[in-house]
Structure formats: structure tokens, C-alpha cells
Amino acid sequence: MAIGNGIGVPFGKNAVGGGGGGFAFGNSYHFDGVNDNMNEGGTDSSTCFNPFNQTDWTAAMWLKPDGSAFNHNTAPFGCGRYVNDAGFGSVVFFNGTAGGNIVRVYSNLYNATFTYEIPAATLADWFHLAVTVEMVDASNQEAKIYINGDLKETKTFTNYNLVDTSTSFRLGGWNNSSSFINAYMNQPVFQESLLSATDISDLYNGGSGANASDIMTTMKSGYLGTEAVGTTTGTITDVTGNQDLTMSGFVAPYGVVSDTP
């Protein structure tokens, strides 16, 4: 089984990332919270990762704050921009007056949001975050937050539209630099379809050492992040070549750390 840096990023409708890889936790990436991010480049809607907008989607990853919590208003991933409190293009934020201990899922309106406060004990170590959005019908969407494989919050939005598609997708933040997260990250997964609670649980348990091949057989075909990832400031590529992300702001050793879930 391929053991890589654990940050291959499957994109797109098929979001293929398996490729014989799977639960690779060889290394993680460290985002310094100042300027580190990985982005698609480009600024138009055609380059933005569209699954966050008007379709079923799933995002999942292992995270650990660099510090006691995430910095206020930082994002593990995003696609959009801040518009004077009237809109957020980002999908998921961590914030809270005591630090970024609250995971907040936004719609396109600032006040259309729902939250889950992550316990300090969970933030003290690696934890698995998953967010799903299901298009129930043309107007209603059901969003869920999972932490460590368990469903924590569910909310139905109306006319959910998360993305300001004028900017490109970023890992480790979104368009506004002050949103860049202070975190260690492993196995980010993005899929343009809905994962079930069982799937999410299996993802979490995979990180705890479950037999990857057994889990893979129960999953939709290959949505897992695998190895890949350069250790330079150049372009990183997932193993399938579906999507390149350009690393920005990293200094040697380019964010790669051995700390893993």
C-alpha cells in the first residue's frame, strides 16, 4: 500500500483518489496560520471547486490545531471571499471568542449558519472533521457536521449556496489571507456526492488503524486522498492527476511534518 504524505486531494464528480493507495498517513502538512495555503490558481468560476454549490458534496479531513485552538475565523478549506459581513464564500470556519473552537458551516448569507463547539479535549489532538451537504430538493439542503466519525449537528438550509465562485478553491484557507488556518492536516477528501454516516465512520476508523482494504470495499469507488504532494514550493498533484494545487507561503521543509493522526 502506498504510504505518502496524506494530502492527495481528489476533486470532481468522480473524485478518484484511491489508485491502490488509501489510508496513507505517512506525513501531514503544517499550515502556519499566516500565509500557507494550497490553491487552484485562477480567479474565475470555471476554476472553482464547484461541488460546494448546489449539489451533494462531502468534505473530510484530519486536523489538529497548531496551538490550543484554531485562530479566529480561519478555514480548513474554502472557495470564495469575504464581503463586508454580507456574505462568506467559504464553506467551513473555525471561530469563537475563546479561539477557533467552534466549527461553523456557512451558507452564502452571513446569518445562515450552524455551529458545533468542539470540546477542548478533542482540539488537543488530531480529530476527524467531515461535513456533508445533501440536496434534498431544489430549494432545501441538509448539512451535517461529523467529528471523529460521529454526527454532531444537522441543519436544513434553504437555497443553500456556499460558494462565491469568483475566486478559486484553497486548502488551508480561502481568499482572505487572515483566514489561513494554523493547523496540521492529513487526508483531505472532497467529493461531489454524499457520504453516509457509515462511510464517515469508516473514514475516521481508518485513521485509527482499521484495515484499509476492508474498508475500501465498502466505499464508493476511490474517493480517498492518497499520497502525492511535492516538498517544494511548486505544484502538488494527487495521484490521479485530477487536480493540481499550488503551494504558497510554505518555507522549507514546505510544511511536511511527520506528525500524523
Binding site: D32, V34, N35, N176, S177, S178, G249
Partner: peptide, 15 residues
């Protein structure tokens, strides 16, 4: 690099 502050002010950032 150029980074944007929370108020979207562009700053030159060295690291």
C-alpha cells in the same frame, strides 16, 4: 507574497 488582512488590505509579507 501579498496577503490580505481581515479588512482586505493588501500587505507585502516576507517569511
Amino acid at each position: 507574497v501579498v496577503v490580505l488582512s481581515a479588512e482586505a488590505v493588501p500587505y507585502r509579507n516576507l517569511e
